[in-house]
């Protein structure tokens, strides 16, 4: 049994080291209109996108999005990026998303991944989970949010901008 655990762990780390998901899968997501869009369509512009996976009940997720919202106006043009907040709220809390977004005056676009199709396709286990992408290529991803970490995320964007 112990051997199996060790084997699985080594395999997992091996996979992490040598392979990485390269593209954002073209999964359909719901809009506030109830209609569907696809990731290819949403990520079609030639700028950076920050995909932030969140839920209305996830306190650190809201903290991260509140913090990004604070700097969004000032920096989104300068650093040439857009934020797409992807709600993973299911039928229990999904109806709360649009009022919450308006109540918080968030400026970015929000999409709904109600049955976690995109979350599953990107193999996301914990929230918040943030992905930086450009032209569908995944450049960076991270799990969790510590206060102030949005600044680190923006630093990453500056680095990519220079490359």
């Amino acid at each position: 049994m112990f051997k199996k655990i060790v084997f699985t762990l080594i395999l997992a780390f091996y996979l992490t080291e040598f392979n990485a998901q390269k593209l954002v899968p073209n999964i359909p997501l719901e809009t506030f209109k109830g209609t569907y869009t696809t990731m290819n369509k949403e990520l079609s512009e030639d700028n950076f996108y920050i995909l932030s996976f969140w839920a209305t009940w996830c306190v650190p997720c809201i903290n991260e999005l509140d913090a990004l919202n604070e700097v969004y106006d000032e920096l989104s043009d300068k650093l040439n990026f857009k934020v797409l907040a992807i709600s993973t709220d299911d039928a229990r809390t999904m109806r709360r998303v649009r009022p919450l977004v308006n109540g918080k005056s968030w400026k970015f676009d929000v999409l709904l991944d109600e049955n976690h199709d995109l979350k599953r396709a990107l193999n996301i286990s914990g929230l918040p989970h943030t992905v930086i992408t450009k032209q569908n290529q995944i450049l960076h991803r991270r799990v969790g949010y510590a206060p102030g970490e949005e600044l680190d995320l923006l630093d990453k964007l500056r680095q990519y901008e220079l490359e």
Partner: peptide, 20 residues
């Protein structure tokens, strides 16, 4: 599949997750 895919760079790739 994975082993033979080690050098892929096209749209063919492996990915996944591990949780314990």
């Amino acid at each position: 599949f994975f082993i033979f895919d080690g050098v892929s760079q096209s749209t063919n790739f492996f990915y996944g997750s591990f949780e314990s």
